[in-house]
Design a protein around this nucleic acid. Structure first.
Lengths: 167, 167
DNA sequence: CGGTAGACCGTCCACTCTGGACGGTCAAGT
DNA sequence: ACTTGACCGTCCAGAGTGGACGGTCTACCG
């Protein structure tokens, strides 16, 4: 079985949570790693199933009502995750920004900028609120990632503000 | 027919080039919009076909040898592209960075940082070389997008350098 | 002048991801 | 008893992905 980034996200979240249902994973991803790597909710149901089949997670299922599946990481899963963490990252990062794409093809910067400024202001405020509330108690990894998010939002803000101001 | 970002990328490139074969689109995308939005080469063959069927491009085909298809934009295509350019961007931008993902899940920053620094240095050098060579003659859109790429590479560099220096 | 290496170019396919529709379950409050 | 809204899981058509594969053309070599 081929492990994708999403596989490792799931392994990482399950390891951190101890045990988790897909819905719990959704909640956990939403405000943390979801800002970093989009995970479709449908994947949170299909992917753990595959990981369980591969022996990296154990699956336990309610046999009535919502028939929730609860996952826990196995030693094999822990090993795979650690191996991935120690290997050099494969591939380059990519940025996909619909606003920037329009700008590339000639959209009017002055028309685009205000909305983009607002969007990034909101995002930045959200990140900084998280940092203020949990920064001190967060594990190092998530905190560093959050810091990366913050500095990038600052960069975006400066960029779009300059475009809003010009002309 | 539903138009995706890739559709507009193709329309935009064809409009700019005047006429283009899929292979020409590949070359055109590689060093410009490809840095902004990844386009799979296979899409450059399938997508124009759909756009031609929808009346947004005309298709002309060699009937011997490589059987290249040459595309040109139609008025309908131009209209669709302009409408898209004037509409507010839908959806938020997203960043996907394998290195940052590993950092999030606890990879050692000091081990990750040097390679990331080098990667972003290379990318930055490439962008700046492009800017130095063509900056003065580039259309505004691509130049602004390139500037965005440059400031972000600076942000990444500062970020990873700090992590390389710490501890 | 035939041959061939390497660039140039197009097609295909299995697989994954995406986005959203749809529908069911449960707790709390009329 | 009934409704409302949060909670939760499944499905599916369409889009994107990554790479294999194979054919065409040019330039240069023997």
């Amino acid at each position: 079985m081929r492990l994708t980034p999403v596989s490792y996200i799931i392994l990482g979240l399950v390891r951190h949570l101890g045990e988790a249902t897909p819905y719990a994973l959704k909640a956990a991803a939403a405000e943390s790693v979801g800002n970093l790597w989009t995970v479709q909710h449908a994947q949170l149901y299909t992917e753990p199933e595959k990981l369980a089949a591969a022996g990296m997670l154990t699956e336990e299922r309610e046999d009535a009502g919502r028939r929730r599946r609860t996952y826990r990481i196995t030693d094999a899963g822990r090993e795979a995750l650690d191996a991935w963490l120690h290997a050099p990252p494969e591939g380059t990062g990519e940025t996909r920004d619909p606003g920037l794409l329009k700008l590339f093809f000639g959209a009017d910067p002055a028309q685009l900028a205000p909305a983009e400024v607002e969007r990034h202001e909101r995002k930045l405020a959200q990140y900084e609120a998280t940092m203020a509330a949990f920064g001190a108690t967060m594990p190092q990894g998530p905190r560093l990632a959050l810091e990366a998010g913050i500095v990038h939002q600052h960069t975006w803000l400066a960029y779009w503000r300059a475009l809003a101001g010009a002309r």
